[in-house]
Design a protein around this nucleic acid. Structure first.
Lengths: 114, 114
DNA sequence: TTTATACGCAACCATACAGTTGCATGTCAA
DNA sequence: TTGACATGCAACTGTATGGTTGCGTATAAA
């Protein structure tokens, strides 16, 4: 499979998404939200070792890359997980993974024939 | 699908890997190495806008999470891509993706029945 | 109308990180 | 041997990031 320049660009544009996933606290938050039930900041802070404000900031980061969405409801802000961006990351990973496979296979074959 | 505590742990342990992927320069390096052909630091620096030392540091980061492996050969150090860690990330993402799907489906069904 | 809860805002701090520069070391080739 | 190339090491800089604290505001409940 040929690696097109636009694939490179596509993948590189995902960097902020990966960066957002590159933090334990944020991954924990995503797992907490993984049951689909919207949760408030206070709920999400409960049980965590860091302050509510820290959690708020992490939720902002996740929001900026579209991984979560927060809606004000009464005096609390309910967050829920957003599927689309994660799908995109999966697709991107599948792409490079397949490209690597192919490349390494070709390389192996090439070495065996020489 | 039930979300087991150990899944949460497993995913959270991937944070450094995601973090390593969360940088444009590093993603570019991975794409450059994606053809399976080992490449030296100088080769990888060529065409990039940052210094060779910067590239070296990025390669170190990629190496620490196992995404890349470097072997000294003569006066140059050849790097090549390592498939395993990427597979692990893909698996982890597939897992949460499926969990979210299931959860959101259940939630939707539940709402429709009430 | 109080009181408690949930959140937003802003300032501040420490550290991690991307990047640079300068210089030393090792290796190949003429 | 000498020069050119490839890398390693160390110090330094600016900025982003994760975290805290204090305080103000809005909303729900008593």
């Amino acid at each position: 499979m040929k690696v097109f320049k636009r694939d490179v660009g596509q993948l590189c544009r995902r960097a902020p998404l990966f960066a957002a996933l590159g933090d334990e606290t944020r991954l924990t938050l995503l797992m907490k939200l993984g049951d689909g039930q919207p949760k408030s900041i206070s709920q999400l802070s409960k049980g965590e070792s860091v302050s509510r404000q820290a959690i708020t900031k992490h939720l902002q980061v996740l929001n900026e890359v579209g991984l979560v969405r927060g809606v004000r409801q009464g005096r609390e802000k309910l967050f829920q997980v957003e599927k689309k961006p994660l799908e995109e990351v999966r697709t991107a990973l599948d792409l490079i993974s397949r490209q690597w496979d192919d490349a390494l296979d070709r390389l192996k074959t090439h070495l065996e024939n020489s």
